[in-house]
Design a protein around this nucleic acid. Structure first.
Length: 478
RNA sequence: GGUCCCAUCGUCUAAUGGUUAGGACAUCACCCUUUCACGGUGGCAAUAUGGGUUCGAGUCCCGUUGGGAUCACCA
């Protein structure tokens, strides 16, 4: 049987990191087996539907290179792939399930968000009064237009046993299961029911989902059983946590995939990082492309315990990806972050300086602020013990260097560095006594991305001369 | 609360019952160096706890503690 997995997000307008990881594992299981990866949109909750949310899902998956073989946009042999368009299918199977004894009709009024514990227990196993309504009477009431839901029957006794690829064999007592709603009064199925029907009809072989579904898995199996269908292979994965106590969630404003990308995390790096949250390749490699993961992924190396999303490690990994970029590729990614900078800068040189120094693209903004304007600084900045400089030496050095720079023919790093070094020797000064003050004059900062000559190249000859003149005025008490 | 699940450095993790418990991030120190960064070298740092089983337990069993999940006409 061909391996088929599906990513079945609900369009709530947000690509949660944990969701993306689930999608990744589903994708990898399919690809590792040469199978198909299906995209299905689960929009059975109209209240939560967000306009444009499906586009975010498409865009995100495409951005990381997880292409699907069947889906709402490209079709396939098992469509439709949007649950709201499958409404008649669920109704048909729901009634069928009632006929098969796996469910019953229930006419109880729906109590909205009722916190009353009594009410919560009302429909627990065997307590639903509607379960005793004769089927003929139920059908009559439905025909008469009375609102109804289809509720699952849990008639079994004893314990349910099922196997999970990650957690092994799990036993749950049937008494623990509630007779939940399968088909809502609006005629749409609940997640529990829609999943079983769709996964079966779409011939899904592996179901990957968060481990919060472990306790309800026996309910799914009961439905499969009632229909005489074979349940899929279950792969429950541990949660992605924000910290030891809380999982990552939209409500807390935790980073989503699109938030991370907007900050300048590369999609490839994010994907690489989340692949390793709860999975490892069995050796000590950490940097993987999606293509490499497709070859080596196995559910056997999936972890059981929750993993905390560590932005610090992702940031490091993103830095690795940035440094591995070709200079041209990096330059293209950096360009949007140069918008506010003077157009006279040598942007290629700036990119060359930025690439090894940043780990997230948006760090470019703060790193380059001094290129717009020299920040206010104190003359004490010219004092540096190791460089053996102070404001007086700085004044001498800059006065010395100014005419030299004005005469430089080839404004590039190597020539500038050679010339300035020669001048240090001629004037019996140390390199640092010239380069350090020059760097301060050009930046007004204690630390800068690149040295004096690199900054000079980035700023260009005119601005460099200009900034040194300004510094001299400042050093002379102006 | 009932039930289910989980437990190795701060974090992500490795370890056919036999290793000085390994790697990575972070952190610290040093080297490189026109500052910073990159790069390089090294340091600090873990088997939650109590009992078993075993010649030998991070690994198997039981208890304890801690944490998570679930008990919706949400997924």
């Amino acid at each position: 049987m061909k391996t088929r997995t599906r990513f079945a997000p609900s369009p709530t307008g947000y690509m949660h990191i944990g969701n993306l990881r689930t999608a990744l594992y589903e994708y990898l299981i399919a690809r590792a087996a040469g199978g198909d990866f299906i995209l299905r949109i689960e929009d059975t909750d109209q209240k939560r539907y967000v306009e444009g949310a499906t586009d975010i899902i498409y865009k995100t998956l495409k951005r990381v290179g997880m292409n699907w073989d069947e889906g709402p946009d490209i079709g396939g042999n098992y469509g439709p792939y949007i649950q709201s368009e499958r409404k008649p299918i669920y109704a048909e199977y729901a009634h069928k399930l009632v006929d098969l004894g796996g469910a019953h009709y229930c006419f109880c009024a729906h109590k909205e968000e009722d916190e009353d514990e009594e009410n919560n227990a009302t429909h627990a196993k065997l307590k639903d009064p509607c379960k005793n309504i004769p089927i003929e009477e139920a059908r009559r009431r439905i025909a008469a237009g009375e609102p109804f839901v289809v509720r699952q029957n849990i008639n079994k006794k004893g314990t349910s046993l099922f196997h999970d690829e990650v957690y092994g064999d799990i036993e749950i007592d049937y008494d623990e299961l509630d007779e939940g709603v399968l088909l809502k009064s609006d005629g749409l199925p609940t997640y529990n029911f829609a999943n079983v029907i769709d996964d079966h009809l779409m011939e899904i072989t592996h179901v990957v989902r968060g481990n919060e579904y472990i306790s309800s898995t026996p309910k799914y199996n009961l439905i499969y059983e009632a229909f005489g269908w074979t349940p899929p292979t279950y792969v429950h994965v541990p949660q992605v946590m924000k910290d030891a106590q809380h999982k990552l969630s939209k409500r807390n404003g935790d980073a989503s995939f699109q938030d991370l990308v907007a900050k300048g995390y590369l999609p490839e790096a994010v994907l690489n990082y989340i692949a390793l949250l709860g999975w490892n390749p069995g050796d000590e490699r950490e940097i993987f492309s999606l293509q490499e993961l497709e070859k080596i992924f196995s559910t056997k190396r999936l972890n059981k315990s929750p993993a905390i999303f560590d932005i610090t490690k992702l940031t490091w990994m993103n830095g690795c990806y940035i440094r591995n970029l070709s200079p041209e590729a990096f330059h293209q990614l950096a360009l949007p972050f140069y918008d506010d900078l003077p157009s006279t800068l040598d942007f290629k040189a700036l990119s060359a300086a930025m690439q090894p120094r940043i780990e997230v693209l948006n760090q470019i903004t703060t790193e380059t602020a001094f290129l717009k304007k020299v920040p206010e600084y104190d003359l004490s900045l010219y004092e540096n013990k190791k460089m053996k400089t102070d404001a007086d030496i700085a004044r001498t050095a800059l006065q010395l260097v100014l005419p030299v720079l004005k005469n430089v023919k080839y404004w590039n790093n190597d020539d500038l560095f050679t010339i300035l070094k020669e001048n240090a020797v001629i004037n019996n000064m140390k390199n640092g006594q010239i380069l350090y003050p020059m760097r301060i004059a050009l930046s007004g900062l204690e630390t800068t991305p690149g040295g004096a000559t690199e900054l000079a190249v980035i700023l260009g000859k005119d601005e460099t001369v200009h900034r040194i003149e300004d510094a001299l005025i400042k050093l002379n008490g102006g």
